[in-house]
């Protein structure tokens, strides 16, 4: 399973990546939505994208909208990972096509829980 971690903070990318790696994912990173789309457009396989909202060049909401508009990428699970935690923002993200939403700060357990909900725990992980 491969995850694309998209955040303009290197620290946050490392935290999310290492949490996902411990769960069994392979990870690639991008600093904003445009860079992330480049990975997809290059044909790289992505099962899960963890997406920050506020980023330069292309923000997370725009990235979600772009991905959902392209049928070739319909199997990419999209999870927002963001400080935006107002009700209205979460509704916007889900309406744009995000599958799940994780509010910062989050724990490693919370990430696991979300992946469980999405049916994305890699098979080797299941006891």
């Amino acid at each position: 399973m491969r995850a694309l971690v998209i955040d303009d903070s290197r620290t946050m990318r490392r935290i999310v990546s290492s949490t996902l790696e411990r769960i069994g994912f392979e990870t690639i990173e991008a600093g904003h939505g445009r860079e992330a789309l480049d990975h997809l457009e290059a044909g790289e396989r992505v099962d899960l994208a963890c997406i920050d909202w506020n980023m330069p060049v292309m923000d997370g909401l725009t990235f979600v909208t772009e991905v959902r508009a392209n049928p070739a990428w319909r199997d990419v699970t999209l999870m927002m990972v963001t400080t935006e935690s107002e009700q209205g923002q979460i509704v916007r993200a889900l309406a744009a096509g995000a599958h799940e939403y994780l509010i910062k700060p989050f724990t490693a357990d919370a990430v696991r829980d979300k992946l469980d909900l999405l049916g994305l725990i890699p098979a080797e992980e299941l006891a």
Partner: peptide, 19 residues
């Protein structure tokens, strides 16, 4: 790394404050 990490803590605190 220091700037990025400390800045990210400020970002998360600020983001939750904003809410």
């Amino acid at each position: 790394d220091l700037d990025d990490a400390f800045g990210e803590i400020a970002n998360v605190v600020g983001g939750n404050l904003k809410a």
